[in-house]
Design a protein around this nucleic acid. Structure first.
Length: 761
DNA sequence: TTTTACTTCGTTTTT
DNA sequence: CGAAGTAAAA
């Protein structure tokens, strides 16, 4: 590794090229962040550009944060005045000030994909769209694609060309958009598209921001879509000081609307653009780079680039084909623990990458058995959890009473006797009076036929109004606490599901903590700001690898990261590249998969191990997959281990042996979602214990056999919460007794004996 | 209204 | 195979 402060000639050239359009083609590990930060420092120090006039856009909050820190460290005073943000936060800031020009209220809320689905369900119901033939997700994808390409609902309906599917989409699009607007809400795609629309319709606003952002840089440019391109094009149009940095070989988000042509056609759009290639790699060994180069060379639509390093060849790439996915997981984990013992490296030197999240499971299991600390990156988002969404919905309702998705989520949660019938009456009234649902609730006294429900509605409105009135005084965290208290939310969680209540309560507590943290750190804390952060920040931004854990993640999540030792698991034709990509025969899709392989390979600094399985269970089907074509594209001399090219068949396996070892009596790890991997571990541990017990690995495990109960059918028992009741039946399960109890006060409940802690009375 | 039984359907997803 | 969602039943 060279001196952090010394730039190579190409990097220096990029730093010095401050005026006019500039395309930096930065290969993996070529020090592009360093170049970008130095370039900004150069603008401020040497070119005397006011930091106020600089805009640096990245894709993730994490990248933005890192760059902000590095820029601040370099330029010192004034550095914090640079806008270093994501596309979405940039646009949010602009929309917060001007969205009234587009007919929205300034306190609009943001809908996540969950909310979008809720809206789309309503849309389909209202328009009588058969969700069997047109799934919500498909419709939303189509709409999202349209928005990425700046096509409005009206425009879409003009371009259906009689295609029935498109006509349906057009209708859904229009209604969906109407509902969002009625709720004074925007979705992620709107955030970009509406900003572009705002600029196009209001030249004076555009010019204000053009004058503000005289120097613009965009990172990960290969992942921009048309709307994002249009946005920066507009912003840069006056001064034309636009610097984009990207690597066409790392464009892996086409399915989300990223347009690789943005980078490939940059020079056509800006004929005076300067192009600088950063090809010297400071991350990986030459062997790893050679492999990456060889693989990506099979792609046709790309700008030619060849990574090289001044460092040595390093170790060969290891390749192992295992019999099945269990062996694969076992081998990987074994390698990790052996390396740690032998080489004295630490767990956080390792990352295991895979194509699909589902692959994490088996590897996780093995890691738990070995007691190796790990973290699974991605998966379920903290803010997507039901209990968190409930709390957020309360806050959203306080912020924006028009937000119908939020309101309907909590209108009867916890139960307050405002059922569907009542809601329908309210909606009818709202329709007639051209008011919102919340507006109707405020007028509940004037609506006939609500009966007792109007009292309940009044209480709910009072709750919301009360919080709304004092939130600016007492703050967000306190407001949350009051909501929890007033609604008796924790009790509600316990009622819902005794078993998961503790986890969920700690999740909610965690949200309160986040609110506290937000109020302490934000320069101008507000409910608006908090909700925005919640909507725009995912917890993937919080991965740090300083705590000695092996990281497990998808290849997509790994982009932008690096690790001394990398495993890429499941490199099989049929899994990576996936079956759909192979059978579609679409070369563009295949090239995207190949770029993903390229991203994976280039994450490794010193060691790269590639594994695959001959036999793998996929979607309940046993598959026999050949070694991935991407592995076969790596020159043999770089690989330690033989790469078989032949197709595998069933006869290659001793199926009886397989059954005996991996299938019989094997309980599937029924893991629920937990807030953190830590929270999930106890459940895993007991799962594994059972697994071992059944596999006979450790004998006499009492957990597998519930033993005897202190009561029998007909006995009266006491439950901590439900009081006393009569046992009506007991059934024996592999691991526990399932007891049915008819409680005096709570009716009949079925529960597991080990959880319910029933006492004979 | 709540629980249970059955069907359906599957990549990746920075915001 | 399993999650998630839906229909049916209690």
């Amino acid at each position: 590794m060279i001196d952090k402060n010394v730039l190579n000639s190409q990097q220096q050239l990029a730093v010095d090229t401050t005026e006019g359009p500039l395309l930096i083609l930065a290969g993996a590990g070529s020090g592009k962040t360093k170049t970008l930060t130095n370039r900004i420092a150069h603008l401020i120090h040497d070119k005397k550009v006011d930091p106020f006039n600089i805009l640096a856009i990245t894709f993730t909050n994490k990248a933005a944060g890192e760059m902000r820190d590095r820029v601040c460290a370099m330029v010192g005073e004034g550095g914090e005045r640079i806008w270093v943000t994501t596309f979405h936060s940039t646009c949010m800031r602009i929309l917060r000030r001007h969205i009234d020009r587009l007919g929205y209220d300034i306190n609009f809320t943001v809908y996540d994909s969950d909310d979008q689905k809720t809206v789309m369900k309503n849309v389909c119901k209202k328009l009588n769209i058969d969700t069997k033939s047109y799934k919500e997700k498909t419709l939303l994808n189509a709409i999202s694609g349209a928005k990425d390409n700046l096509i409005t609902a009206a425009e879409y309906s003009l371009e259906t060309f009689g295609d029935f599917t498109k006509i349906v989409i057009a209708r859904a699009y229009k209604e969906y958009q109407d509902q969002l607007k009625k709720s004074n809400a925007v979705d992620f795609d709107d955030i970009i598209m509406l900003t572009v629309q705002l600029f196009k319709e209001n030249p004076e606003i555009l010019e204000f921001y053009q004058d503000r952002f005289k120097y613009i840089s965009v990172d990960e440019y290969q992942d921009t879509n048309k709307a994002q391109f249009e946005l920066i094009r507009l912003l840069a149009d006056k001064y034309r000081n636009l610097c984009v940095v990207g690597d066409d070989d790392q464009s892996i988000y086409k399915f989300r609307g990223a347009n690789i042509r943005n980078i490939l056609d940059f020079e056509e759009f800006y004929p005076d653009a300067k192009v600088i290639k950063l090809e010297q790699n400071y991350r990986s060994t030459q062997t790893i780079l050679d492999a990456a180069n060889a693989v990506i060379a099979n792609n046709r639509s790309r700008k030619s680039k060849r990574l090289w390093t001044a460092e040595g060849a390093g170790h060969k790439i290891r390749f192992m084909q295992l019999d099945n996915a269990y062996e694969e997981a076992d081998t990987i984990v074994d390698e990790i623990s052996t390396s740690v013992r032998r080489d004295g490296c630490s767990y956080n030197d390792f990352a295991v990458l895979y194509r699909t999240n589902a692959q994490a499971r088996l590897i996780e299991e093995r890691l738990v058995i070995r007691g190796i600390p790990y973290n699974v990156v991605g998966g379920t988002n903290f803010y997507a959890r039901a209990e968190i969404k409930d709390m957020i919905a309360y806050l959203k309702t306080i912020e924006n009473g028009l937000d119908e998705v939020a309101l309907r989520r909590i209108i009867n949660v916890p139960k307050r006797s405002i059922g569907t019938a009542t809601i329908d009456k309210l909606l009818d009234f709202a329709e007639i009076t051209d008011d919102s649902l919340y507006g109707a609730m405020q007028n509940a006294d004037n609506i006939s036929g609500l009966g007792k429900a109007s009292l309940k509605i009044g209480a709910f409105v009072k709750l919301i109004e009360g919080r709304r009135a004092e939130i600016s005084k007492i703050g967000i965290a306190e407001t949350l606490k009051k909501i929890i208290e007033e609604t008796d939310y924790y009790e509600y969680l316990k009622d819902q599901d005794e078993e998961s209540a503790d986890d969920r309560i700690s999740n909610v507590d965690e949200l309160v903590n986040k609110a506290v943290a937000y109020e302490e750190t934000a320069e101008d804390p507000s409910l608006t700001g908090f909700l925005e952060e919640v909507a725009l920040v995912s917890d993937i931004d919080n991965i740090d690898n300083g705590d000695g854990r092996v990281l497990l993640m998808t290849l997509h999540s790994a982009k932008g990261l690096e690790f001394p030792r990398v495993f890429i698991a499941g490199m099989e034709d049929g899994l990576f590249p996936g079956m759909t990509t192979i059978s579609s025969g679409d070369n563009e899709d295949m090239e995207e998969e190949r770029r993903l392989a390229y991203v994976g390979i280039t994450r490794a600094k010193e060691y790269l191990t590639i594994t695959c399985a001959k036999m793998r269970m996929l979607r309940g089907e046993t598959q026999f997959n050949p070694v991935s074509r991407f592995v076969r594209e790596i020159p043999g001399e770089l690989i330690d281990g033989m790469v078989p090219g032949n197709r595998l068949s069933r006869s290659d396996f001793d199926e009886d042996d397989y059954e005996r070892r991996y299938s019989s009596g094997r309980p599937s790890a029924r893991l629920k979602s937990y807030a953190t991997p830590e929270a999930r571990k106890p459940a895993m541990q007991s799962e594994i214990k059972n697994l071992n017990a059944i596999a006979g690995l450790s004998k006499g495990m009492p957990a597998a056999n519930p033993g005897e109960l202190s009561f029998k059918t007909g006995d009266t028992v006491r439950h901590r919460k439900f009081g006393t009741g009569v046992v009506t039946s007991i059934s024996k399960e592999p691991r526990d007794y399932k007891v049915t109890v008819d409680f005096d006060a709570y009716g009949t409940k079925i529960m597991y004996a080990s959880f319910a802690k029933l006492e004979k009375v």
